[in-house]
Amino acid sequence: MLSNRTACLILVACMAISLCGCPRALPPSVSVNDTMIDTVRGALEEGVSSGDGGGTAAVLADPTGWATLSGTFKINGAAPPNQVLKVDKDTQVCAPGGKQVLDNIVMVGPGGALQNVLVYVSSTIPSDNPAWIHESYESVRNGEVIFDQKNCIFLSRLGAMWSTQTLKVLNSDPVGHNTNLDSKRGATGANISVPANSSVPYVPGGASPAPFPVSCSIHPWMKASMMVCDSPYFAVTDANGSFSIANVPAGVELEYRVWHEKAGYLQEVTVGGATEKWSKGKFKRELAAGDDVKLDVVIDASAFQ
């Protein structure tokens, strides 16, 4: 006979089982139904037999000349203070005299001038076509770009290079470093030990889709970013917040992207006083041959919080 007590016990037991049965939180999954799979697969593979690995690059009309894009970046409001780094190794070299070392992610100069903003052309540029690459860039095409570290700080918080160039990773310290160029796509990653007072070459072999982190595992507080562009049309703002990209292809509409390590892609800005929304840091400009266009960009400090 099933007494109330037993029934209650079974009830509780059942509840316990049904509650405990699958307690592990699993990552979310969106269920797909089987008929959908075939339809999607068909659409994804349509026209793929062989010889069509990727998309065909859009054919652009050749540029009509060259122009210059320059400008300044300013921050409006108070930038977040830079943090003091915990330097606990090789202190004689890394923090001589016990001096404080700051992370310097947001470098602001007089008048709000914002340093280390990356501006680059993100449109695909046929980089072997002389109609697209100005002759002034030929001398640097296979050149060397220096990326130095001293007192256990990367001297450039943000580095940028053309994918055809070689990065000379310098170590100007009397202690060894190892430079971990952590590119996961496009440009190859490298983690090389750089002996004291020496250098190591880094050949990226391709462009990176976005800036990637650079670090040193011997001194974990050392951090920087690196961008490998697939054209020479890029610039990083200096201590005055200014940048200049000379001899940009004119007469064609190019897409530019703007990035800062702390704020990511800069999205809400004012250019010459007018508000612009740069979706994912992208803006487009078509410059006329001989133009010298200057962009005065102001970003609100809230983007850096």
């Binding site: 979310p28 999954s29 969106v30 269920s31 797909v32 959908m36 799979i37 339809t39 999607v40 697969r41 659409a43 994804l44 593979e45 793929v48 062989s50 010889g51 069509d52 690995g53 990727g54």
Partner: peptide, 27 residues
């Protein structure tokens, strides 16, 4: 986006019970 991603992933790679080798042209 979640739905699109799930569709594409299942279309290309199938499911744990019925995996698929995607056709990727030259590769």
């Amino acid at each position: 986006r979640h739905l699109d991603l799930a569709d594409v992933m299942a279309g290309m790679f199938g499911t744990p019970d019925e995996p698929n080798v995607p056709k990727l042209g030259d590769v």
